[in-house]
Design a protein around this nucleic acid. Structure first.
Lengths: 340, 340
DNA sequence: TCTGGCACTCGGCGGGTGAGAGTGCCAGGA
DNA sequence: TCCTGGCACTCTCACCCGCCGAGTGCCAGA
């Protein structure tokens, strides 16, 4: 389908268009990319690429612009085969940056988002590890009022989730203390497996304290599940606005709305968890219409026990080479940092 | 300085300009605002207002646009004297909304931000209560690795802060447990007062556990102080982009950058804590240049023990009446919710 | 199969023009 | 003394038009 020359014409065209944001003509391709043939020849190749749907002309006397399929062919044919991380100084910068950051999970991820957006000039998205796989290490109940308490859950990965509980009747400090130590002992293990069985066990018991324990346990499970909305953090929106495709506010609004809504963002990006390598989704390949004119480059980080997804979102006219390299380097380095 | 008629001309002009986003001429003012005089008279009033610096003409044959001082006079003379909250249905909506929300602080504040931006179509900013005034209710130490632990602090207002600690040498579970119960008992009280004295007391002690305790205490104080960066949450950026003054990305970028940076945002908005009523800051009245073309309407909520600031940020061409009413109603209602 | 040449097609830009909106000023009237 | 209608003036904006240039497709020849 794509012979050697046609592929290099496409590659050159994408590179040029990404850099210039202008429809690309046959002349500049020959002049700047050493294709070893005349403009007329390139024109016939361009006509063929247009036939295949890889490029299009905004109007008849204009140069060509890559389509989503064109970018796809470019990524599959040019970027992915030469897969690599960031070059020396940038990679070094990433590693040094992590070395200088305090080791609290939330802070590390926040820094990660800032770094990714700085490296790429696109919006960075970081999905914190899900709580589902983590093991509960401690359950704390703190009484705030006669009928109110706060349940705080700490996992072995250092994640913390909390939730307020309202009881139907007053509870005593003693009761809470006993329930707390009971739950802490009982729930020491993987959340999904252990907690569910504990729930049925407690439900079978009777007495005031088992009611409190059941209530607290439900909230624990609930807040672990619902903490998902807060798992997404984004950064670098101002940088994104510098790109000409986002100079029209109408083009940016749906994207910003998506970014503000943690849950939607999560559904959009988190299926990357299933693929092992960096994933590139171009324009309409994205599941949501809001991302129809943007590309997402994402990868998972960490391991099965403690891992999430990082990625960048930018215009389809994206520097895929750099974006892929940055996401790969950052996710690898982050995995190392978390693993130790 | 401002006689009756001149004031009502200014008021009408601001109202009209806010609605139409067009320079306002003498004719429409007379036609739509029942000023009871002819356009020629209004023109002389407008000339006087221009003399005083309350309005200006973008060019000689155009209508007038309010200046920052003009908005200031409008707010002081028209909005503030008739101070009131939102009208019936909106106010009812706010109250009902809070009634249906789970009572965890973070969630309540998040909802507050969403509601404020929905009510006003401007960006909402919510500053969570500072930890400084709250009393520590519980300190938890969870061991994550031989030399690593997580310290979790819960205050009586239901706020939770956490921080990872790295020790110089391995610590045992027993040591951590003893330090934990020691700290929990010692630190039961107001943070600033008690914790500082505890620090000197512990520093004077000797032995392994006092070293651990001192380390943990330092982290507790530190993370209570540093949690400030996470105290700011924003919402409604997409809505803001709908306003014509933000159709130019260059105008939005600095604002978005400010919003992304929690600390800067905090310094910009948190001095509202000192004023009891709704505060309006118009254009250049704002301390930061990024907000030079925007207005901030903010108020504190809660009480001395548990309170913060909420506000909206929009163009100086703002519906001040509605913004002030919305901020007032929401902060009052939020105060009620938190007080109970 | 590639290349140079040629006619053709549009989009964008600069300049000119006319309509419209709004003003300031002035003289006359309550 | 203050208000009003009338009038001449100014300036922007939207529109139109024509030119320039970039880039194409096609074709004949190497």
């Amino acid at each position: 389908m794509l012979n050697e020359r046609r592929r290099s014409v496409l590659s050159a065209l994408v590179d040029e268009y990404v850099a210039s944001v202008q429809p690309v003509g046959s002349k500049v391709l020959v002049q700047r990319y050493g294709l070893g043939c005349s403009p007329a020849t390139v024109r016939s190749e361009l006509a063929a690429l247009e036939e295949t749907g890889y490029v299009f002309q905004p109007h008849v006397s204009a140069g060509r612009i890559p389509t989503d399929s064109g970018y796809r062919a470019y990524v599959d044919g040019v970027v992915t085969p030469a897969a690599s991380g960031l070059a020396g100084s940038d990679a070094e910068g990433v590693r040094r940056h992590y070395a200088s950051v305090e080791r609290e999970l939330g802070e590390v991820l926040h820094e990660t988002s800032a770094m990714l957006s700085r490296l790429t000039s696109y919006v960075a998205v970081v999905v914190a590890p899900t709580f589902r796989r983590a093991r509960i290490r401690r359950v704390t109940l703190v009484q705030l009022a006669p009928r109110r308490a706060l349940v705080v859950v700490v996992t072995d990965s250092g994640q913390v989730a909390d939730r307020a509980i309202e009881f139907d009747a007053d509870v005593t400090a003693d009761e809470l203390t006993r329930v707390e130590s009971y739950l802490s002992q009982t729930l020491d293990g993987a959340v999904e497996a252990v907690a569910e069985s504990a729930r049925t066990r407690i439900a079978a018991m009777s007495g005031r304290e088992s009611v409190i324990a059941l209530r607290a346990l439900n909230e624990v499970l609930d807040c672990l599940a619902e903490a998902d909305a807060d798992r997404v953090m984004t950064g670098g929106v101002p940088a994104l606005l510098a790109h000409p495709e986002f100079s029209d506010p109408a083009a940016v609004r749906p994207l910003l709305a998506l970014l503000e809504d943690g849950i939607s963002m999560l559904t959009v990006i988190s299926d990357v968890m299933r693929t092992p390598d960096v994933e590139v989704r171009i324009g309409h390949e994205n599941p949501s219409v809001e991302l129809g004119h943007t590309s997402v480059v994402a990868a998972r980080y960490g391991n099965d026990d403690l891992g999430g997804v990082i990625g960048v979102i930018g215009p389809t006219r994206m520097d895929y080479r750099r974006a892929v390299a940055a996401v790969r380097t950052v996710s690898d380095t982050l995995s190392d940092v978390l693993g130790s």
